[in-house]
Nucleic acid binder design. Structure first.
Length: 289
DNA sequence: GGGTTAACCTGCGGGC
DNA sequence: TGCCCGCAGGTTAACC
C-alpha cells in the first residue's frame, strides 16, 4: 500500500516526467476518482503548465502555473500514476487520463479499489511555513520534511489518551505512516502497539521517532532503486520492501531479534503485528483496538 | 472537542 | 467447479 516512501517515489517520477509540461486534455473515466473535486476538474486543467511536484505525508500535488491551484492526488490503497505511450491500450482500472500539448507520454491515474482520488483545488490561505492545498491544511508535517518539529510531536503525542499505534496512524499528528511502517517502527523501537501514549517517556518517544524515520528512509531507498524511466510508481504495493519487514505480515515467524513467534492482533478492523518477546505490553494497559 | 467506529471498494484466497 | 466469506487498508463523516 502506498505510504510515504511509495508516494515520494511517485512524486520523483512526476517531477522527472511531467513537470514543465502543459496539459492538453483531462478525461475522467470513473466519477469516484474525482469525488472530492470541488468542480471543474476537466475544465480547469487544460492549458495549464504543471510547474512542480510536491508532497506531504501520503498526499502529493502538482502546482499549476499560474499558481492559484494544485492538482492534488491521494493514491488510496491501490492507486498508481503511470506515464507512458499515449497510444497504448487503456486498461479497465484507468480512472483519469491527462494528455499533454507536446504529444508526448500521457499520465494515467489507475486505481483498482477506488480509494484514491484526484482534485483540482486552491491553496490554503494560511498554512505557513509551507503552502498547502486547502483540503490538506489539517495534515501534519511528515517526519522527513523540514517543517516537522520533534518537540511539538512529542508534546502532542503524550497529551493524547490512546494507544501509540493509533496515534502513529493519525495523519493530523504525524503524516506519512500507514499500517505497515507503523508496525515496523514499533518493532524497531521495541514498543507494543497498544502502549498508552500518555505513559511514554521522552527517551521512548525519541526512540520511536528515530525508528519511524529509519524505516521510512530505508523503504525510500528501496523504492528508489526499482522503477524504470516511464513507470512512475513501482507497483502500488509494498512488494519491494517485503524482504526487509521484520514484523508486518509475519505472524508465526520467528522475531529476527529474539526468535519469539510474531503475533497478529485484530486492530481497528485490520491487523497489528508485534513480537510478544521484545515488545511487551505493560501490565494493566487499556487496549484500544 | 477528543476519541472511536463504520463505510467506502475490489480482488484474492480459503473453506465448503 | 463455484459460491460465500473474510481480509487487505486510508480517509472521513458521524457518532459517543
Amino acid at each position: 500500500m502506498p505510504e510515504l516512501p511509495e508516494v515520494e517515489t511517485v512524486r520523483r517520477g512526476l517531477e522527472k516526467h511531467v513537470t514543465g509540461r502543459t496539459v492538453a486534455s483531462a478525461e475522467v473515466l470513473h466519477p469516484r476518482a474525482v469525488r472530492r473535486d470541488p468542480g471543474g476538474f476537466t475544465a480547469l486543467l487544460p492549458g495549464h503548465r504543471l510547474a512542480s511536484a510536491q508532497r506531504r505525508g501520503k498526499y502529493l500535488w502538482l502546482t499549476l502555473d499560474p499558481a492559484e491551484h494544485a492538482l492534488l492526488a491521494h493514491l488510496g490503497m491501490s492507486g498508481q500514476l503511470l506515464v507512458g505511450d499515449p497510444d497504448r491500450p487503456v486498461s479497465s482500472h484507468v480512472r483519469v487520463r491527462l494528455t499533454f500539448d507536446d504529444g508526448g507520454p500521457d499520465l494515467r491515474f489507475t486505481d483498482q479499489r477506488t480509494f484514491g482520488h484526484l482534485a483540482v483545488v486552491p491553496f490554503a490561505t494560511v498554512s505557513a511555513p509551507v503552502l498547502l492545498p486547502a483540503p490538506i491544511a489539517h495534515i501534519a508535517p511528515d517526519p522527513l520534511e523540514p517543517a516537522f518539529d520533534p518537540a511539538v510531536f512529542a508534546a502532542r503525542l503524550t497529551r493524547r489518551k490512546t494507544g501509540v499505534k493509533r496515534a502513529l496512524l493519525d495523519q493530523s499528528l504525524i503524516s506519512g505512516v500507514g499500517n505497515i511502517y507503523a508496525d515496523e517502527a514499533l518493532w524497531r523501537a521495541e514498543l507494543h502497539w497498544a502502549r498508552a501514549t500518555d505513559t511514554l517517556k521522552p527517551a521512548e518517544v525519541t526512540r520511536l521517532l528515530d525508528a519511524v524515520r529509519e524505516v521510512l528512509n530505508e523503504a525510500l531507498v528501496a523504492g528508489g532503486t526499482s522503477f524504470d524511466s516511464l513507470y512512475v510508481n513501482v507497483n502500488g504495493e509494498s512488494g519491494y520492501f517485503d524482504r526487509s519487514l521484520a514484523a508486518y505480515g509475519r505472524a508465526g515467524e520467528p522475531c529476527p531479534r529474539c526468535g519469539t513467534p510474531i503475533r497478529r492482533d485484530p486492530f481497528m478492523n485490520r491487523s497489528a503485528f508485534s513480537c510478544p518477546g521484545c515488545q511487551p505490553l505493560p501490565r494493566g494497559t487499556r487496549i484500544h483496538r
